[in-house]
Design a protein around this nucleic acid. Structure first.
Lengths: 166, 166
DNA sequence: TATTAACGGATAATGATTATCTGTTACGAT
DNA sequence: ATCGTAACAGATAATCATTATCCGTTAATA
């Protein structure tokens, strides 16, 4: 049994265990979420589903993803400027590293964060139910591309204007 | 000189230093951002600006806030489900604690995070330019309200359905 | 295989944000 | 002080990811 196969079985059993139907369209979405290495957009899921089920509607992808999110089996990475991403393999909070140029997202290893929610809870009295840690940066590939673009005015001006003091 | 007065002076000098005009509408937005304890929505800023300048347009508030954000003088807290918030007093990354019931946002004290960006940068090769840490929970007031609502079905069913394994 | 609530497809609606257009104004130069 | 002008403000249309709605279809159970 592959890892994605086990994950798919789990998603199917959770769905059925809660009395939801397993339709071909849903199964296709589950397969994609279980097989992907995470961080898919709805449009990406939609495009892949349509390879097997060309009649599938975008609304169905939204509905299935939302259903899985509400069951706690998919992690939604929402962004205010559109293009939310969905992780069907690690549906629990974990840090993300996002390239602001190509929008690639990876999961960096970050040490010793598990105590933070408890720390915040006891210092504030809030009941913590979720958290999120995102790092934004430029991936090595896009750094190389920027250096290629190189010594022309546009890139340098843009870089000069992005002053950061942290 | 009050703290918000100093902050306002700083915002004004940055604006003028970059050659932008200081209009009454902009000054009103700057004052509000400098005086508020952070985390204002555009609608909140808009409502306060209109007390002094009733003719002010919502678009102007958006434009001013975006301008300050691009200058690095305002921190934008974007949320995928709308209602972004703006912090004009601490425009650098810092943790936030968000009540998922009443949408109140506070700045919790969280220890020893400053090394994380560097850690992620060196382990991944990304150039880190920003980061964000949000905790989501229920504030003490909303917890009390939930307990008041108490032993009726709706609240309990909702709580039963929000299964969390982390 | 029949029943039926749940579901899928198509598309309209939503709503925060952005773009566009036009008349006005802050501000350095005169 | 006034002028000239690019920058600005107001009004509102456009955008676009997401959600809601409606109706025909179907998975799951008996």
């Amino acid at each position: 049994m592959t890892e994605s196969g086990a994950r798919l079985d789990h998603l199917v059993s959770v769905l059925k265990g809660r009395g939801y139907r397993l339709t071909p369209q849903r199964k296709a979405v589950l397969q994609i979420l279980a097989a992907s290495d995470g961080h898919l957009s709805v449009e990406q899921i939609y495009a892949r589903v349509k390879k097997d089920f060309p009649m599938t509607s975008l609304a169905t992808v939204y509905k299935t993803v939302t259903l899985l999110k509400e069951m706690g089996e998919v992690l939604e990475l929402g962004f205010s400027d559109g293009g939310n991403r969905y992780d069907g393999r690690k549906p629990y909070p974990h840090p993300h590293l996002i390239c602001i140029r190509c929008r690639k997202i990876i999961d960096p290893e970050v040490t010793a964060l598990s105590h933070l929610p408890q720390e915040v809870a006891s210092s504030t009295g809030y009941r913590i139910v979720n958290h999120r840690l995102d790092f934004f940066g430029i991936c090595p590939e896009c750094q190389a591309a920027e250096n290629q673009a190189g010594n022309n005015s546009a890139g340098q001006a843009a870089r000069r204007n992005s002053i950061r003091r942290w």
